[in-house]
Amino acid sequence: MDLRDLRYFETIAELEHVGQAAERLHRTQPALTGAIRRLEKAAGAPLFERAGRGIRLTPAGKVMLRWARQLRFDAQDAQREMSDIGRGLSGEVRVGVVPTAAQFLMPKAVSRLLKEAPEVTLKTTVALVDALMPMLRAGELDLIVGTERRAEAGFVSQRLVEDAVVVAASAKHPVFAGKTSLKALGEYRWVLQPAGAPTRDWLDHSFDRHGLPRPVVQVESSSLQMLPALIAETGLLSFISRRHLEGPGRLRSLREVVLKDTTMRRHLVVTHRAQAYLPPAATRLIALLS
């Protein structure tokens, strides 16, 4: 099988359309059709079937896609490993980072790495872990520093630190004037991430479990970095990492609303593909984060 044919096949499988794949790859449709025919001849089975105006993978196609990706990963890893021989701590490391880790874990580790290895370059992508995992699966990232999630075959995770997510408010908020309870928190308005974000869902379910209405969200923001400042400026409640409230970089105008029912404990982990090649600089970065 030709690696170029497999690369074309991956793109067609992703887009489920030969014409769109031809545009992305800057190739003609007959060229891509020829690649598919060669792969189907080698596989001894059709790889695609019609689906409306597009196409979709057959069971054989799904198997082919898994191996096509693995072959691409192996070819890329071999090239990177050979180019790293004798270079030591240099080259590029592609890292996906969740916002909390980007703010509180990465700066110190990166600073130490660059002092040890001035020739290393880092390419970072900051996003939630659900957005980063597809990039790791596709081989676009070497590793993710993110929140722990259910184990997935083919990936290895190592715990770094524990993190607590808590309710926070301006130190002048009236919530601190009386007795704190989950019911009392429901009387105020909030600034939270959109529904579907892990911390937002956890908080919503905490109210659900006690038979209480979910928090009334007045401001919804997908930017975790913006939440602490919004809390301080608007007088709304929010749900953020306790790290924003501790240490020398803390916002002194904010306080934690201490309540067991609204304290979410999680771990930050580093995750990479189990069989993937990790550049020496990536391995060193993991050690510095640990």
Rank of each mutant, 00 (worst) to 15 (best):
L114M: 14
K62I: 11
L236G: 12
A169F: 03
L185H: 04
L71H: 09
K108W: 02
R72S: 08
W190I: 14
V258C: 02
T271Y: 01
A276K: 04
T124G: 02
K41H: 14
L32V: 10
I240K: 01
Q79Y: 07
Y8I: 03
A43N: 05
L288Y: 04
G34F: 02
V145M: 09
A117G: 05
L160Q: 06
Q158G: 02
D2E: 10
A168K: 00
K179G: 12
H173I: 04
L128C: 11
Q225H: 13
T58K: 01
I144Y: 04
R189N: 11
L254K: 03
E92K: 12
S223I: 06
G211K: 04
M133V: 15
L203C: 12
Q70C: 02
Q158V: 09
R243Q: 15
E81L: 13
D5Q: 04
R189G: 15
P213C: 02
A68L: 09
A153D: 14
R252M: 12
V166E: 05
S157E: 14
G211H: 09
V110F: 03
G52M: 04
A197K: 01
T234N: 08
A21P: 08
Q158L: 08
R255K: 15
A43R: 13
Y188W: 13
K41E: 15
R266G: 01
P198W: 03
E140H: 08
V120R: 02
